[in-house]
Nucleic acid binder design. Sequence first.
DNA 1: AACATTCGCAACCGCCTGGGT
DNA 2: GACCCAGGCGGTTGCGAATGT
Length: 270
Amino acid sequence: MRCKLASEKPKMKQKKGLWSPDEDQKLRDYVMNYGHGCWSVVPINAGLQRNGKSCRLRWINYLRPGLKKGAFSIQEEETILNLHGLLGNKWSLISQHLPGRTDNEIKNHWHSYLKKQVQKQENPETTIKPECTNSDTGHTESSSSYLKSLTRNTSFDSLTYNSSSVDMDQPAHFNKLPKILFADWLGLEEFHGHETLVCKEEISNGSNYQEAPLSGNLLTNNEGSTDSSETVNCLDNNYSNEDMFHNQMKLDQIFNFNGADFNFEDFLYI
DNA sequence: AACATTCGCAACCGCCTGGGT
DNA sequence: GACCCAGGCGGTTGCGAATGT
């Protein structure tokens, strides 16, 4: 783990504070050409008077390709609220389920907006924004009712809630996939070895979500399926909320979901 | 217009973990 | 096994912009 070059690095005064466009360009050029490798040598090789940590943060949070800029969509906020309800302040885990969003961005959005909205929801005598528009349906909803729909079922105790979650930018089969959260916790080796998947808490069928019950089987009810329900058996039904994440389920039972032929990679992008 | 307050965001800080020596 | 270091993470801070008075 230790970098040879890092131990040879000269002691130079390191700059702090906001990054200039010139610094950004140097870092971007270097990482795009050579990769970051050991972050502690990046500023040396890129000619930057920054420390490796600062470079890493700047790259991850701002320069990295594929970052999504702009306001959070309703679906993204919904995902954050649900995952925060399950995981707490595990921003890096949450960010893995919001492609293009960084943990820092999510954390900031939570502290600056979502947390307050949830607090207001729990304490209804305080006023909240009069209305907001669902970008999917185009329907204007009161923030109050909308937030209720967002926060209604963020605990494991709940079983279902409705959500407009069809992603028009995805391939047609995408929205029929059981939406599996925490896919990054899986090992590709496990998949390719056709062993087991780590248990996912939440699955969806595009227009409806069904959260996994506290015990028993994970159920999906996929529209358009010849068989209206699919059952994914958890190997261990006696689990606590935390254990939910670690239960094992049979891979092939998910993989033959709805008779469709899915690639494992499809799940990873959900 | 001037000042105060709030908001949003970028970046830093400190701690923890894991791997190398 | 102890120590060192890089990387990763969550909490916090600082500052400019936006908004309110």
